[in-house]
Amino acid sequence: MSTERGVHDADMARQLARKPRRFERLIVGSLFIAGAISIAITIGILWELGSESLLFFLDDDVTLGKFFFSTEWSPQAGSFGIWPLILGTMLITVIALLVAIPVGLSAAIYLSEYASPRVRNFLKPVLEILVGIPTVVFGFFALTFMTPLLRSIFGSQVGFFNVLSAGIVVGLLIVPLVSSLAEDAMAAVPDSLRQASYGLGASRLETSLRVVVPAALSGIAAGVVVAMSRAVGETMVVTLASGASPRNFSLADDSLFGYILSPFEGAQTMTGYIAITASGDISYDTIDYNSIFAIGLTLFVITLGLNSLSRRIVKRFRQEYE
């Protein structure tokens, strides 16, 4: 577009004018809608959970106090205290983390600090395949392999349904999550820190455990919290392996380690209760039906809390390396 030098181009203003670009606006608009849909769905879920829960709490048999402080969950008897279900979820989550943190972190250290590139390129995808196995398969694994194994080790004190078997298998289920996130965090630690450590005469183990892991700690902690919220929300394994009876307890009368926290007894979890109840033939608008929404809301609040905790850990403790 050549214009003669020094000559005023009357047409220039028109050439510089904004073009309509309708197609581009259409694309931007649809991108926005796609984003908005996911937010709308979240709001819809919250609305549904909230309104149905409200019906539950408005029922004469239920009070907020009983829901949050009673340690008995027997819908048939009209007792709706959430603690037995939270207890089941907590027991399984703790056992799962006791399995997943050492195994996952060791795997991450091996992959990031020891494995040759060839071994790593083979092992990482294999580990991540574990994530793709349907959880119902893990549930069967718990019921038909882990429980018999535990019973052969610990004897008949191990119930047919027990939280130990479910917890261990949920732990195995989240190992790839822990190892993958921890390995990412460790791979992000700059090599200059490793070289500094080796240059001071540190061995590989000292470098891994005392330089790389501390430097990656925020990412590792965030990974653990994400894995924890996955364990809290896990449904299939616990439904199959840990039974369908809530572990109702009385702090005054029951033995703390013999029963309340015993890994050998079964315990229904929040997710397990929802799955069983929702798939049973309960009728709409009964209190049982409404109760699953109240539990769903509680679960939602717990996992939301865990996820924002993980964000805060990353933000607060992120290490600047240089």
Binding site: P190, S192, L193, Q195, A196, S197, G199, V211, P214, A215, Q319, E320, Y321, E322
Partner: peptide, 10 residues
């Protein structure tokens, strides 16, 4: 050893 870029530990 002392490296090209200062690399103190965090």
């Amino acid at each position: 050893m002392v490296f090209q870029k200062p690399n103190p530990f965090p």
